[in-house]
């Protein structure tokens, strides 16, 4: 069964100098349990494609379906509800909430989904990424690698079927980057999730089941 199904997907954004075509007709499907790496030069549309898969951006043409649902037919709130417990997203720049501790950051998606014992489950996820001792620390008190581990714990806390990662090691040094990748693949294996990852690093892409190359808004 396909977890992700994209057909004829286009994305045009309005810029100051006029509309910019980001994606120019993407056809792609990803099977359940598969790990897929999206690679390509900067500006080729990889991150935008990932945003469309997460329902964080609306396609201006074509169809994006995730876990059997047409994301284009949903409004902002429906998309937010849809992501709960189904999708986990990891960003290059972590996007932790600066006013919340590590534990609270991990607990937020569980609390939003109305999960009981959100704090206990979040603590377990933090233990799993090796940050059991940093629960009460704020993002500003942690290193980049630690912040990204919190982000990973947050993404996997809801046991998602689909993990989407946008250059998760892009802001990290080699050692931290390798550790994060180990954690990411470990989490994916533990929860049996499908993984789509944007990366510039060939060695990371090679760890995935399939590599898709993008150039100029198209699959190469």
């Amino acid at each position: 069964m396909d977890v992700l199904e994209l057909s004829g997907v286009r994305l045009t954004l309005d810029g100051n100098a006029g509309p910019v075509e980001i994606l120019r007709g993407i056809d792609l499907s990803v099977k359940a349990g598969e790990s897929l790496a999206l690679i390509g030069p900067s500006g080729s549309g990889k991150s935008s494609l990932l945003m469309l898969m997460a329902g964080l951006e609306k396609a201006t043409g074509g169809k994006v379906a995730a876990l059997g649902q047409d994301l284009g037919a949903m409004d902002e709130d429906a998309l937010a509800r849809f992501r709960r417990g189904r999708m986990g997203v990891v960003f290059q720049s972590f996007h932790l909430i600066p006013t919340m501790t590590a534990l609270e950051n991990v607990a937020v998606p569980l609390e939003i989904a109305g999960v009981a014992n959100a704090a206990r489950l979040a603590a377990e996820e933090l233990e799993a990424v090796g940050l059991g001792a940093r629960k009460g620390h704020y993002p500003s008190q942690m290193s980049g690698g630690e912040q990204q581990r919190v982000a990973l714990a947050r993404a996997s806390a809801g046991r998602p079927k689909l993990l989407l990662a946008d250059e998760p090691t892009g802001n990290l040094d080699q050692a931290n980057g390798a550790a994060i990748m180990d954690l990411l693949f470990g989490l994916r294996d533990r929860h049996g999730a499908t993984l789509v990852m944007v990366t510039h690093a060939p060695e990371l892409a090679e760890r995935c089941d399939r590599v898709v190359r993008m150039a100029d808004g198209r699959l190469a």
């Binding site: 937010a80 709960r84 998606p109 939003i112």
Partner: peptide
């Protein structure tokens, strides 16, 4: 703005 975006990513509806 980034926090609002993150809350949305984590499944928070506009109302929340």
């Amino acid at each position: 703005v980034a926090t609002i975006a993150t809350l949305k990513v984590l499944g928070a509806e506009g109302g929340l």
